[in-house]
């Protein structure tokens, strides 16, 4: 009994000490969304229970190690204790109740994070190897940065054009995979940013070669700044080259094609217009409008020498012919 009391006091001390210690180190990034609140609440609760249970068992163990050592030369056995059914029931029942409570709180907090505001801002999030594209269907904007007004719920519709990606902004806490091809597999995520600042969406599902670098800016701004940005974006340039340059980033061509001559996953676009290009099957062709159109619509048809057939076949499904034409004018301008 005296051992139990001593160990019990130690458990309490160590628990308190560890909880205090954990308060001193950085454990979570700043919380920047309304959804982060119930989640951080759960985290804190979990950390406390973890620390308590860890202390409970480890302290009892270390106490035994220190106090109940075998004396040198002692070959007798310890007291014969086979078990104790009442104790077993207790330490089955208490954890059972604890986990049920956690599951209940878990459902509650999940409900909090998915609660819908009546009129959210809708954004389509389209993931592709290895870029993010954000379309604001109601505003007619397509962008590579996710700009959001503060304190307004945004409803994201996520899908991908190739493999599985995952939308995660650590400061917002919530995460959702984007599945290929959209349609029925489009998934929704609700976020209410509540802290102005710049963050990053970081792709959390391994999606191939450049998964590490699949990050895009997420900018939470005051409503007035957001409105100004919308006004600026919606005025579309009259110059096809300028438009093409924009499509180049918004549709993610920049993930594989450079503009300065350095080869990437795909050939650079610098100075290719009007030149000869060789293909892996030995044939060649001159780079003109027709060829470019065809290699965007149907990349697998001809593979440029020195490259693999890595350009996603459906990269251009969302590109209208007009936009492709803009891109071609842009490539032409890179002579």
């Amino acid at each position: 009994m005296k051992h139990l009391i001593a160990a019990g006091i130690l458990v309490v001390l160590v628990t308190v000490g560890l909880i205090f210690g954990m308060g001193q180190i950085r454990l979570l990034p700043v919380a920047a969304s309304a959804q982060a609140q119930p989640i951080d609440y759960m985290f804190n609760l979990e950390f406390i229970v973890i620390v308590f249970l860890f202390s409970l068992i480890v302290v009892m163990m270390v106490y035994s190690i220190v106090v109940f050592r075998r004396k040198r030369g002692d070959t007798t056995d310890a007291k014969h204790v086979e078990g104790n059914t009442r104790l077993e029931v207790v330490w089955t029942a208490i954890p059972l109740m604890t986990v049920l409570a956690f599951a209940y709180l878990g459902s509650w907090s999940l409900g909090e994070t998915t609660r819908a505001d009546p009129k959210p801002l809708e954004v389509n999030v389209i993931a592709a190897q290895w870029v993010w594209r954000f379309e604001y269907p109601t505003l007619g904007i397509v962008s590579n940065e996710l700009r959001l007004p503060v304190d307004k719920q945004v409803l994201l519709h996520l899908w991908s054009t190739d493999v599985i990606h995952s939308f995660w902004v650590p400061e917002f806490r919530v995460k959702q995979d984007a599945l290929p091809d959209g349609g029925e597999l489009t998934r929704d995520l609700r976020i209410t940013p509540n802290r102005i600042g710049e963050y990053k969406v970081r792709c959390a599902e391994l999606c191939g070669l450049k998964h590490s670098f699949m990050e895009s800016p997420v900018i939470v701004m005051a409503q007035a700044d957001f409105d100004a940005w919308v006004a600026e974006q919606t005025g579309e340039s009259a110059d096809p080259v300028e438009r093409g340059q924009k499509w180049y980033t918004t549709y993610g061509c920049n993930a594989c094609h450079s503009l300065d001559g350095t080869p990437g996953v795909g050939p650079s676009w610098k100075g290719i217009y009007g030149e000869q290009v060789k293909f892996t099957d030995g044939t060649s062709s001159v780079v003109d409008d027709n060829y470019l159109y065809e290699s965007i619509r149907n990349p697998a048809l001809k593979i440029v020498q020195g490259y693999q057939n890595l350009m996603p076949a459906n990269v251009a499904v969302d590109l209208t012919d007009d936009k492709i034409n803009d891109i071609i004018r842009f490539i032409e301008s890179l002579k």
């Binding site: 051992h3 035994s64 002692d74 077993e88 330490w91 986990v99 599951a103 878990g106």
Partner: peptide
Amino acid sequence: MYSTLLVAVPTGVKFFSWVATIWEGKLS
């Protein structure tokens, strides 16, 4: 979520039984 958390219960039984095994033993 419910089923997952339930696994903690039988695992806990093991831990508590282990501690009770060494408690007042003659450890080397």
